[in-house]
Write a protein that binds this DNA or RNA. Structure first.
Length: 154
DNA sequence: GCCAACGTTGGC
DNA sequence: GCCAACGTTGGC
């Protein structure tokens, strides 16, 4: 079983939204590295739900991969936000995918990014080294450290 | 295959 | 709202 961390802006999709829906498609990922991580996910893998672009940014919940990668239906639509210079979309299907995630729990006391930064064992976390990757792997050792802290807090 | 332009992410 | 970091595009 592998471990992951997935970011979402709570204004767009929050842990409460996932709690309400129980199972939801994690769509809209338009970054190749993040897509590759989505493709590597297996049913039953666990992932942290991270609230980004909010104050304070934090790990707020736990979820489970309920369905492995499948085509993201929104990816055929014209992109609302495109990166890079001006110009047309290039041809060819980049193969954007989504997974379904299932709510496991919401933490009463989220683990703030600021807390994570203070834990020496986590200094090499992708979260801290590449802050812009929205779907990222978490090593088993890092996972244990994080889970221990979170469970201790409730 | 380099790299300038430029758009997005996300913490602050 | 600012801006550093970084990804993508596309001309060359």
């Amino acid at each position: 079983m592998a471990y992951w961390l997935m970011k979402s802006e709570p204004d767009v999709f929050s842990i409460d939204d996932l709690h309400r829906e129980n199972v939801a498609g994690w769509d809209g990922v338009r970054n190749y590295q993040a897509r590759n991580n989505l493709r590597a996910m297996r049913q039953g893998d666990r992932a942290f739900f991270y609230h980004s672009s909010t104050n304070p940014p934090a790990i707020v919940g736990l979820m489970e991969v309920a369905r492995e990668a499948y085509p993201d239906p929104t990816s055929k639509e014209p992109a609302l936000h495109t990166s890079g210079g001006p110009g047309r979309r290039t041809s060819g299907d980049p193969g954007w995918v989504q997974v379904d995630v299932k709510f496991v729990k919401a933490f009463h006391a989220p683990l703030l990014l600021d807390d994570i930064k203070r834990i020496p064992a986590l200094s090499r976390m992708v979260l801290l080294r590449n802050s812009r990757l929205s779907v990222q792997p978490v090593s088993p050792a890092e996972w244990k450290v994080l889970i221990d802290r979170l469970e201790k807090r409730g």
